[in-house]
Simulated scan of single mutants.
Amino acid sequence: MAYDRKQPFNDLPLLPPSINVEEDIEVMKKLVTASRALATINSSIHRLPNPTMLINTIALQEAQTSTAIENIFTTEDELYKAVSETIKEENIRPATKEVLRYREALWEGFNIIKNSGMIDLDCVISTFRQIKNSTATIRPPQTLTVIRRGQSEFRSGEVIYTPPRGVGVIEAKMKNLIEYLNDDNKHSADPLIKMCIAHYQFEAIHPFSDGNGRTGRILNLLYLVNKDLLGQPVLYLSKYIMINQEDYYHHLSGITQRGSWKPWVLYMLDAVEKTAALTNQLIVSIINQMEATLAHGKSNIKWYNKEVNEAIFSQPYIKPKLIGDLLSVTSRTTLTKYFNELVNAKILSPNKDGRDVYYINDDLIQILKG
């Protein structure tokens, strides 16, 4: 396959690949262990009283790390304050807003595929728009998009890849990609293998002017949910990619330059296996701590119940209003008394930020720190 990185890669082969990596023994073995690891997450998710409580814990970590891959950084403290509304909207930094948009895009995409039963172009574009807070769509044919080396890299600014472009070119390749994902009769590979292959193809097509990396990583999770391999889009996949970022780009390049699919598929399956184990460990730790805190809370506070306990574990930072709304308590005096009881029982610890006081679930913070 002749390839000139300075020319649009309009010869990007359509899916499926000409090489059937699924028949490789090493790939098959890794596929089995990755699939088993994913299954453990689902069994743990079923133990949760409310699986969507992971939106502001594990899903938020995924959003933060996926955004950091694009050199957009924020701190856990900023994120938790923004999620719990302990800081005003106008005081939230742009980087933190980017992470929150990623989280919203993840859950909006989750709702879309639950309703439609598939990942289509509208879902892809909607995900991208949510991430970028934009009304843009597929790159126009005249846009001279290129991928360059980062400023911290050797030969910074050098063109390393030029994605396809031209009238109808991107649209045709996206149509092929979406058909590959959804038509299991025509393309019957294992869904995990298809996810690996489709992720490369999406990044190689590079359908948008910006935000392709984050959009592609969300699509990975949505596809696993769509194929019932993941009950909720909470796989902490970006952590593996962040730690092994050099290998990630090396293996992507290997497919583009040499059609070398096997190392890429093994890399992605290993990412699924390792992050599934990590994600499952986080979920189990949260469940176990929830159960211990519920027993402790009920034995020390007469009004403490399962619903309050779930709310306290729905996010690391808690504003009194969250519990007040749950218990229909409008009296500030009563709410202050309740939170004093939570502090005395060491379930929460107070933290003052200017005139506002919010409360921290230290046990949950420790779990999320790993």
Rank of each mutant, 00 (worst) to 15 (best):
Arg5His: 11
Gln7Trp: 11
Phe9Val: 03
Asp11Arg: 15
Leu12Met: 12
Leu15His: 14
Pro16Trp: 12
Pro17Asp: 00
Ile19Leu: 08
Ile19Cys: 05
Asn20Ala: 10
Val21Pro: 10
Val21Arg: 06
Glu22Cys: 10
Lys30Thr: 00
Thr33Asp: 09
Ser35Thr: 13
Ser35Pro: 10
Leu38Thr: 02
Ser43Phe: 09
Ser44Glu: 07
Ile45Gly: 11
Asn50Gln: 14
Thr52Met: 13
Thr52Glu: 09
Thr52Pro: 11
Ile55Leu: 07
Thr57Trp: 07
Glu62Trp: 08
Thr65Pro: 06
Ser66Gln: 05
Thr67Ile: 00
Glu70Ser: 13
Ile72Val: 08
Glu78Gln: 15
Leu79Ser: 05
Thr86Arg: 07
Arg93Leu: 12
Thr96Tyr: 06
Lys97Leu: 15
Tyr102Trp: 13
Arg103Asn: 14
Trp107Asn: 09
Glu108Gly: 13
Gly109His: 08
Ser116Cys: 06
Asp120Glu: 05
Cys123Trp: 07
Val124Glu: 03
Ser126Val: 06
Ser126Ala: 13
Thr127Arg: 08
Thr127Ala: 10
Ile131Leu: 15
Ser134Val: 06
Ile138Phe: 14
Ile138Asn: 06
Pro140Arg: 11
Gly150Phe: 09
Phe154Gly: 05
Ser156Ile: 01
Ser156Ala: 11
Thr162Leu: 12
Thr162His: 13
Pro163His: 11
Ile170Gln: 03
Glu171Asp: 04
Ala172His: 12
Lys173Arg: 11
Lys175Arg: 12
Tyr180Gly: 00
Tyr180Ser: 02
Tyr180Ile: 00
Lys186Leu: 12
Ser188Arg: 10
Ala189Ser: 15
Pro191Tyr: 07
Leu192Asp: 01
Leu192Arg: 10
Lys194Phe: 08
Ala198Ile: 07
Phe202Gly: 02
Phe202Leu: 06
Glu203Ile: 02
Ile205Gly: 05
Pro207Leu: 02
Asn212Gly: 05
Asn212Leu: 09
Gly213Leu: 13
Leu219Phe: 10
Asn220Met: 11
Leu229Phe: 13
Leu230Met: 04
Gly231Val: 03
Pro233Asp: 01
Leu237Asn: 03
Lys239Asp: 00
Ile243Cys: 03
Ile243Ala: 04
Tyr248Gly: 02
Ser253Cys: 09
Gly259Ile: 00
Trp261Ala: 00
Lys262Met: 12
Leu266Ile: 00
Met268Cys: 02
Asp270Ser: 15
Asp270Tyr: 07
Asp270Leu: 10
Ala271Arg: 10
Ala271Ile: 00
Glu273Ile: 01
Glu273Pro: 09
Glu273Trp: 09
Thr275Gln: 05
Ala277Thr: 12
Gln281Lys: 14
Gln281Val: 01
Ile283Ala: 02
Val284Glu: 02
Gln289Glu: 01
Met290Val: 00
Gly297Ala: 00
Lys302Pro: 04
Lys302Met: 06
Trp303Cys: 03
Asn305Leu: 11
Asn309Tyr: 08
Ala311His: 12
Ala311Trp: 10
Ala311Ser: 15
Gln315Asp: 02
Lys321Asp: 13
Ile323Asn: 03
Gly324Tyr: 04
Thr330His: 14
Arg332Ala: 02
Leu335Arg: 05
Thr336Ile: 04
Tyr338Ala: 03
Asn340Gly: 15
Asn340Phe: 07
Asn340Pro: 07
Leu342Lys: 10
Leu342Asp: 02
Asn344Tyr: 08
Lys352Asp: 01
Asp353Val: 02
Asp362Cys: 09
Asp363Val: 03
Ile365Thr: 00
Gln366Lys: 15
Ile367Asp: 01
Gly370Arg: 14
